[in-house]
Simulated scan of single mutants.
Amino acid sequence: MKKIETSFGTEIAYIREGQGIPIILIHGLDGNMASLYDLKNKLKTYFEVIIYDVRGHGKSSKPNSFHLQDHVSDLNILMHKLSIEPAHLIGYDMGGVIAKHFTDQYETSVRSLTLIASNLNNNVHGLNKLMIEHQDEIEGFDKSEALIILFPYLYKKQDVAKKWFQNQLIYSRQSSEDSAIATRALMNFPEYDKNNLIKHVNVPTLVIYGRYDPLCSKESFQQYHDAFTSLKIFEFNHSGHAPHVEEAEHFMEVYLKFVNALEYQS
Rank of each mutant, 00 (worst) to 15 (best):
V124P: 09
T45P: 03
Y52P: 01
H88A: 12
I116V: 15
L120V: 11
M79S: 09
G95M: 13
L78H: 00
D93R: 11
E48A: 04
I51P: 06
D93A: 10
R55Y: 08
H101Y: 07
I51Y: 09
T103M: 10
K42E: 14
A34F: 14
N64A: 08
L36D: 07
V72Y: 10
E107W: 09
A99F: 08
L78M: 11
Y92Q: 04
G58E: 13
Q105I: 08
N119L: 11
L113Q: 10
K42M: 14
N119D: 15
N128G: 09
L36V: 05
Y92K: 08
K100C: 05
S73R: 06
N122D: 03
L43S: 01
T108F: 12
F47C: 08
A34D: 14
N123G: 04
L36E: 02
D104A: 02
N122R: 09
E48D: 12
P63G: 05
H101I: 03
Y106C: 02
Y52I: 09
N64S: 11
H80N: 13
D53I: 11
I77C: 01
H125A: 02
K42V: 00
D93L: 11
H125L: 07
V97N: 13
K62T: 12
Y37Q: 08
V124L: 05
D93H: 06
T108H: 13
L36W: 02
V72R: 06
H80P: 00
H88I: 14
K44L: 03
L75K: 08
D93I: 02
S109T: 06
T114D: 07
L36M: 11
G56Q: 06
N41F: 00
H71D: 03
A87N: 06
H57M: 09
L89N: 10
S65N: 01
S83P: 00
L82V: 06
V54A: 15
A117W: 01
H80V: 02
L78I: 01
Q105S: 15
K100H: 13
L75Q: 02
S118L: 11
L36S: 03
G95K: 12
N76G: 04
P63E: 04
L68R: 01
L127G: 07
V49F: 05
E48N: 10
L36T: 06
I98A: 00
L89A: 08
L120A: 06
E85S: 04
S60T: 05
L113H: 10
K81P: 03
N123C: 07
Q105Y: 09
L113N: 04
D93S: 15
L113V: 06
L78N: 03
L36G: 00
H71Q: 07
F47T: 09
L120W: 02
L115Q: 10
V54S: 15
K59S: 04
N123Q: 05
M79N: 07
M94V: 04
L89D: 09
L43W: 01
S73D: 12
V110G: 00
L43E: 03
T103V: 11
M94K: 14
N123D: 15
S65G: 00
I77P: 05
K42L: 11
D74I: 00
S118M: 11
S112H: 11
L82M: 13
Y37R: 13
A99S: 15
P86W: 11
H125K: 15
